[in-house]
Design a protein around this nucleic acid. Structure first.
Lengths: 340, 340
DNA sequence: GCAATGTATCGAACCGGTTCGACGATTGGA
DNA sequence: TCCAATCGTCGAACCGGTTCGATACATTGC
C-alpha cells in the first residue's frame, strides 16, 4: 500500500504539502494540487485509518452497544441497529457493533482505547451500569431508551406513557369498558426495562380515570409459551373486548391464536399493538398499532451524537431528553365492542 | 487519558521497558514489572488503539459486510450477524458492521484504510462485485454463502443441493407424489442468490429420478403479497400433498394461511421448511425444517478468518470451501399423504 | 527603492504505541 | 583474575498521518 510519503515523492513535493493539497487546509497552487491529486490517484492512495486517528484523535467510527437477551424478541432490535448504521454512514461514520454480554466492560474497552468517537447505547435499563462509564468517558454518547437518571446524557425514546394513554383512549372512545394489556415478560422488567411499566402505569391510570377495567398481564417472548399465554389470557377474561399489546413476540403470535379460537378481529376483539410499521409488514400483522419508530430513534440519536462529536460548541450545549410522540396507525383492527 | 509514557514515568522506567513489562515480550525483572503493572493500574492505562494499530499493523477489528435488501427477510440475517460478532469477541476481535448499499465501495474503504484485519462477507451473489476487491485486498476474507467462483477465498455455506434432496427424499419415502417448492422471490435470484436455484435444481433432479411431480414456484417476501401467493399456490395445485419452503418469509406466513383455509398440518398437508431452530422458535413455526445453522456458519467463517489473520503460515494454506450438511429437524409436520 | 504584506511550500515535531540494537551490570568458567 | 555470556534496561527509530512555525519569493504601498 502507498503512503502519503509515496504520493509526495511521486508529485515532487514534501509530505506536508501533499497533506495540505489533499485536505485543502492551506492554500496550495493549482499546479501542485493537480500533481498531488494525480499522484494519489495513480498510487490508489488511501490514508491509513490508524495513523490518522493517532494524529487527529478522530476515528470516524461510532460504537453501538446492543444486547440480545434470551427473553427479548431479536427481530425488533434489528431495526434500531439499521437506523443507526445507515445514519452513521450518511454522516461519514462507520459503526462498531458490540453485542458483548458485559456491556459495561465493552463500553470501557472501546472508549478507553479510543476506538470510537462516540457511542450509542441501546437496551437501556433503569439502573444501567454502563451509564456511569459513559458519563466519565471522553467521548459523547447517546441513548435509545430512557434510564432512571438522564443527567449528563442525550436520551431518545418513544413516549411510552402517552402511548399507553392513546391506546386506552382510543378503545374507550369506541365504547370498550374492559381491556387486557399484555406487556413484556417479567425478566425484562426486572432487568430494568422501564418502558414496560411506563406504558402500563400510564394506561392503568388513564383507565382508572375513564372508569375502564384494565387487566395488565405479563407476556412471554418465546414459543410455545406465548401461545399458551395468549390462550390463558383470553380464557381468563372472557368479557374483555380489547387487547393492548406492548410485546412484539405476542403480537407476532396473535394471528394464529385468533384463527385457532375462531375469533375475528375487530368484530369479536379489538386489538392495538406497539411496534414499527416495518415490523408489521414483515410479520403481516393486521392490527392497528402505535408506531415505535426505531429507525427514527436510531437516526436521531446518531445525529445528535455526531453534532457533539464534531462541534466543540455543541459539546457544551445542555443535554436533551427527547420523546417521539406515539402515532396510532389504523389498520382497522378496532371497532365498537360486542360481547364475545 | 494516560499514555504509556505516563506509566513509564510513574514507574520510573523508560517507555520501552514499560512496553516490554506489559507485553512480556522481553524478560523484565520482577521488581520492575510489579512497579509498571501498579502504575498502569493506578493510572487506568489503556493502550490507544490507533497508535497500536499504526505500530503493529493489527487493529483487532473484523469487518462484517451485510446487506439488507427490501425483498429479503431481515430477521433471518440477524442470526448470521450474531454468530459473527459473538465468535469474533471470543477470539478478541471487535466487529465493524457495514450495511452500506454499495458493498464494493465499502469493502474498498475499510480494507484500503486498514481499519480491519479481515472481513466476513454475507449475502454472496453468484457474480459478486466485492470478490475481486477482496482477492486483491491485503487482508484475508471469508464468505458466508457460495459465489460462482470460489478461487482464492474461504467459503462457508449450507449444502443447499443436499437440502433439496433431503426434503424430496423424506416426503417421497412417506408416499408423497406431488409436491410444491416455494423459493425466494425472483429478484433474489436475479441479484445472484445462487442458493435459491441450488436447492431448487437439486430438488427437481431428485424428484425426476424418483418419479415425483415437483412444482417449483417463486415466493414473495413481504406481506400481503406472501399471503396471496400462498393461497394462489394452494389453489393452483390442489392435488399436491407436500410443501417445501426455502423462504423464511413464506414459512412465517404459512400458519395463518393454513388456519384460514382450514388445512391441518400434517393431516392435510405435509410441510418442510429451511431455516434455523432459533428462527423456528422465534416465529413459533410448527414445521419440520432443514437447519440452516446461521450461527455455526458465521462462527466457522470467523474462526478460519482469524486463523489466517494471526498465523502467517495459515495465510498460505489452501483455501477451503466447506459445506454444512443439512440436518432435518422433525417437528412432526409430515405424514403419509391424504388427498385434500 | 525598500519595507510591509501575502502566498506557497518545506522541515520538524508530534500523536502513542512497538521493536531493534546497544550497553552496563552481574554471573560463571577457565 | 580476567573474559565471555547472560540478563535487564535504555535510547532511538519507526509506523503514517497532521500541523505549527519558518522561509522564500512575489506583490503591493508609500
Amino acid at each position: 500500500m502507498s503512503t502519503i510519503g509515496d504520493v509526495a515523492r511521486e508529485a515532487g513535493v514534501s509530505r506536508s504539502t501533499a497533506s495540505y493539497a489533499l485536505s485543502g487546509k492551506r492554500p496550495i497552487s493549482d499546479e501542485v494540487r493537480r500533481r498531488v491529486l494525480a499522484a494519489a490517484e495513480a498510487l490508489a492512495y488511501t490514508p491509513n485509518a490508524g495513523a490518522r486517528a493517532l494524529a487527529t484523535s478522530e476515528t470516524m467510527v461510532l460504537g453501538l452497544l446492543a444486547q440480545f437477551h434470551e427473553d427479548e424478541f431479536a427481530p425488533a432490535m434489528l431495526q434500531y441497529i439499521l437506523g443507526v448504521t445507515d445514519t452513521a454512514r450518511d454522516l461519514g461514520y462507520d459503526t462498531l457493533l458490540v453485542t458483548e454480554a458485559d456491556g459495561a466492560r465493552a463500553l470501557r474497552r472501546i472508549t478507553d482505547s479510543r476506538m470510537v468517537d462516540g457511542v450509542v447505547l441501546m437496551n437501556i435499563a433503569q439502573e444501567d451500569p454502563r451509564l456511569p462509564i459513559l458519563r466519565a468517558a471522553p467521548q459523547p454518547g447517546a441513548l435509545v431508551g430512557l434510564p432512571g437518571d438522564c443527567s449528563g446524557l442525550d436520551v431518545f425514546d418513544l413516549d411510552f406513557e402517552e402511548a399507553g394513554r392513546v391506546m386506552v383512549d382510543h378503545l374507550h372512545r369506541l365504547g370498550h369498558r374492559e381491556l387486557v394489556l399484555i406487556s413484556q415478560p417479567d425478566h425484562v422488567v426486572e432487568r430494568g426495562g422501564a418502558y414496560v411499566w411506563r406504558l402500563r402505569d400510564a394506561a392503568l391510570e388513564r383507565a382508572r380515570l375513564l372508569g375502564v377495567t384494565l387487566h395488565a398481564v405479563y407476556g412471554e417472548s418465546r414459543q410455545p409459551a406465548v401461545g399458551r399465554l395468549l390462550n390463558g389470557v383470553l380464557d381468563a377474561h372472557p368479557s374483555a373486548t380489547g387487547l393492548l399489546i406492548n410485546n412484539e413476540a405476542v403480537a407476532a403470535a396473535l394471528p394464529s391464536v385468533t384463527y385457532q379460537r375462531g375469533l375475528r378481529v375487530p368484530e369479536d376483539l379489538s386489538v392495538i399493538g406497539r411496534y414499527s410499521a416495518e415490523f408489521a409488514a414483515t410479520f403481516s400483522l393486521p392490527y392497528s398499532f402505535i408506531e415505535s419508530a426505531p429507525d427514527r430513534l436510531g437516526s436521531m440519536a446518531v445525529r445528535q451524537l455526531v453534532r457533539r462529536v464534531e462541534s466543540p460548541a455543541a459539546r457544551n450545549e445542555p443535554f436533551v431528553v427527547r420523546f417521539i410522540s406515539p402515532e396510532l396507525v389504523s389498520l382497522k383492527s378496532t371497532a365498537p365492542p360486542r360481547p364475545r
